[in-house]
C-alpha cells in the first residue's frame, strides 16, 4: 500500500449526507499495460458492440440476423447434398462471396455507423484521445474490429461448408487433407474483402455522426458504384467496356476472389464478358482500400474534439 492510501485514505465517514459511503480509497499499484493493450481493448469492445453483445436485443437483431443469412447458402448446399448425394454443388468457397456480397454490404451499412459514428455522436472521442491511444491507434482498432467482423461473417460459412462436406463423405480426414489447398485462398480472399469493405464503409460513415445518414450513404455507395460500373460497361463501346467494372465494388471483389482461387467466372456473367485479367480487379481493390484508408485516417487527424 502506498503512502497515499495509508496516509489520507481513511477520512471520516461523511457519507450519509452526500450519499457517499466511505469504505476507504485504495490506490492502484498494479500493472498499467500501455498503448498496445489499450488498442486491443478498444478492438475487442468494438467487436462486441458490432454484434450487439452487452447491448439491448434490438441492437443484436440486424448484425446477428445478417450473419445468419450469410450462412444460408452453405446450409442449403449441405442439406441438398445430404438429400441428393450425387454431384450437385452450387455453393463453393470460390463463389461464396457472390452469394453473400449484398448481405456483407448491408452488414457494413448497419455496423459502420455504430463503429465509427457513435463516439462522435456521444462526444466520447475526447476521452479516448486523452488516453494513451493516439488518433491513428483509435482508427486502427475500429478498422480491425469491423474488418474482423466481416472476415468472420464471410469465412464461417465457408468453413462450415468444408467441414460439412467432409462429414458427408466417409473419409473425413482424407477429404480435409485433400482440400487443404483451399484454406489459403479462403482466408486470403476473405481478408481482402474485409479490408476493402471495412475501409470503404468506415471512410464514408465517419463523415457524419448521424447514424441514419451514414447508413444511407454506405448503401448508396454500394448501389451507385455498382450501377455506374454496369451502365458504363454497357455504354462504352468495344473491349474497353470491361474496365468500367473496376468501379463496381461487388464486381471487382468477385473478380479478385476468382483470381485468388484461380477460378473462371461463370459463362455469360458480366465478369466473363468483361474478360479482364484478375490482377486488374486485385489492383482496383487495393486502390479502393488505399484511398479509403487515406480518407479515414486523415479525417481523424483533423477532427477537433
Amino acid at each position: 500500500m502506498s503512502e497515499r492510501a495509508n496516509g489520507r485514505g481513511t477520512g471520516p465517514a461523511t457519507g450519509l449526507r452526500t450519499g457517499i459511503y466511505d469504505l476507504g480509497y485504495r490506490s492502484y499499484e498494479g500493472a498499467r499495460l500501455g498503448r498496445a493493450y489499450a488498442v486491443f481493448s478498444l478492438f475487442s469492445y468494438t467487436l462486441r458492440a458490432i454484434f450487439g453483445l452487452g447491448r439491448s436485443v434490438m441492437s443484436k437483431v440486424f448484425p446477428i440476423g445478417l450473419a445468419i443469412i450469410a450462412l444460408v447458402p452453405a446450409l442449403v448446399q449441405l442439406a441438398v447434398a445430404a438429400i441428393a448425394p450425387e454431384e450437385f454443388e452450387f455453393a463453393k468457397p470460390e463463389n461464396y462471396f457472390g452469394f453473400v456480397s449484398i448481405v456483407l454490404a448491408l452488414f457494413c451499412a448497419v455496423s459502420a455507423p455504430e463503429v465509427i459514428g457513435r463516439d462522435q455522436r456521444h462526444h466520447t472521442l475526447a476521452l479516448y484521445f486523452s488516453r494513451s491511444l493516439s488518433r491513428n491507434d483509435y482508427v486502427t482498432a475500429k478498422l480491425a474490429a469491423l474488418g474482423g467482423a466481416i472476415f468472420a461473417v464471410l469465412v464461417t460459412p465457408q468453413v462450415l461448408l468444408l467441414t460439412g462436406n467432409a462429414v458427408a463423405t466417409d473419409e473425413i480426414v482424407d477429404y480435409l487433407t485433400g482440400n487443404l489447398d483451399l484454406v489459403p485462398p479462403i482466408l486470403g480472399s476473405a481478408f481482402l474483402v474485409a479490408t476493402m469493405m471495412s475501409s470503404v464503409s468506415l471512410a464514408i460513415a465517419c463523415q457524419t455522426p448521424r447514424r441514419a445518414w451514414s447508413t444511407g450513404a454506405v448503401i448508396a455507395f454500394f448501389v451507385i458504384a455498382t450501377a455506374l460500373g454496369a451502365i458504363l460497361q454497357e455504354t462504352i463501346s468495344g473491349d474497353n467496356g470491361g474496365y468500367a467494372l473496376l468501379l463496381s465494388p461487388f464486381a471487382l471483389l468477385e473478380g479478385t476472389v476468382n483470381w485468388i482461387f484461380g477460378a473462371t467466372p461463370e459463362a455469360g456473367s458480366t465478369l466473363a464478358r468483361a474478360d479482364l485479367n484478375g490482377a486488374y480487379y486485385f489492383s482496383a481493390a487495393i486502390g479502393y482500400s488505399v484511398v479509403a484508408l487515406g480518407v479515414l485516417y486523415r479525417r481523424f487527424q483533423k477532427l477537433a474534439v
Binding site: G30, A31, R32, L42, Y45, L133
Partner: peptide, 12 residues
C-alpha cells in the same frame, strides 16, 4: 471499458 483503455488488466 475505460479502465482497460487506461491500461488496467481485466480483473483489476
Amino acid at each position: 471499458h475505460m479502465a482497460r483503455i487506461n491500461g488496467l488488466p481485466s480483473a483489476a
